[in-house]
Amino acid sequence: MSKVCEITGKSFMVGNNVSHSKRRTKRRFNPNLFDKKFFLPEDNRWVKLRVSASGLRLINKVGVKAAIKSAQEKGYLSTKF
């Protein structure tokens, strides 16, 4: 399973580990992802999404249905709901 938020499209970032002697080695910064189930009262069903913490705040702000619709328009969410 990929480490990408299905609502915001956030994925990993690349950076450096910097030691005390300033040697730099590559590392990855992964997003803060959660597997959550959301209830859609219009359809009377549950939906499983893999969302980041900022995606959860977006869902709380605009609602599940609107967040899923915007994610589909942007191409982050491929399945039909």
Rank of each mutant, 00 (worst) to 15 (best):
N44F: 00
Q72H: 09
V4M: 11
E6V: 03
N30Y: 11
N60P: 02
L77V: 08
S78L: 12
E42V: 06
K80N: 12
D35C: 07
V14I: 12
E42D: 11
V4D: 08
D35Y: 10
K26H: 07
L56T: 10
K80W: 02
L33F: 10
L40S: 15
I7T: 03
S11E: 13
G63Y: 02
N30K: 00
E6F: 03
V64N: 09
K36P: 05
K22F: 14
K69W: 09
Y76P: 03
S52R: 04
H20P: 05
G75P: 07
V64F: 13
S52A: 10
K69C: 02
N60R: 14
V62M: 09
R50E: 03
S78F: 09
L33I: 07
S2P: 11
E73G: 04
T25L: 01
I59N: 05
K10A: 11
S54Y: 06
G55F: 00
K10L: 11
K22C: 07
K61A: 11
I7Y: 03
I68W: 00
R27M: 08
T79L: 01
K37M: 10
K37Y: 12
F12P: 00
K80M: 06
L77I: 05
E6S: 06
R45F: 00
C5K: 05
I7S: 06
W46T: 10
S2E: 13
K10C: 02
R57K: 14
F81K: 00
K3C: 06
V18H: 01
R50L: 13
F38N: 02
K80D: 15
S11K: 15
S52W: 05
G75I: 06
R45N: 11
K48A: 13
R24F: 00
M13C: 04
F29A: 08
T25F: 01
E73K: 13
S54P: 08
L56E: 10
F34K: 15
F34H: 15
S19I: 03
F12Y: 14
S54K: 14
F29I: 14
A53M: 07
G9P: 03
L56S: 04
L49Q: 03
A67G: 05
V51E: 03
V18M: 04
R23L: 12
F39N: 08
T79G: 07
V18Q: 04
I59K: 06
K69F: 14
D43C: 05
R24E: 14
K22D: 10
D43H: 13
V4A: 06
V47M: 12
R57M: 08
E42Q: 06
G9Y: 00
S19C: 04
S2M: 07
M1L: 10
K22P: 03
L49H: 01
K69E: 15
K37V: 10
K36H: 04
L33R: 01
N30Q: 09
R50M: 13
L58H: 02
S78H: 11
L49S: 02
T8C: 12
A66V: 01
F38Q: 01
Y76S: 08
P41N: 06
D35Q: 09
S11T: 15
F81L: 14
R50G: 00
A71T: 07
R57T: 08
H20S: 11
K80C: 05
G9A: 08
A71D: 05
G9D: 08
N16K: 00
N60Y: 00
V64R: 11
L40E: 15
F29K: 14
L56M: 13
V51M: 08
F81C: 07
T8M: 10
G63L: 01
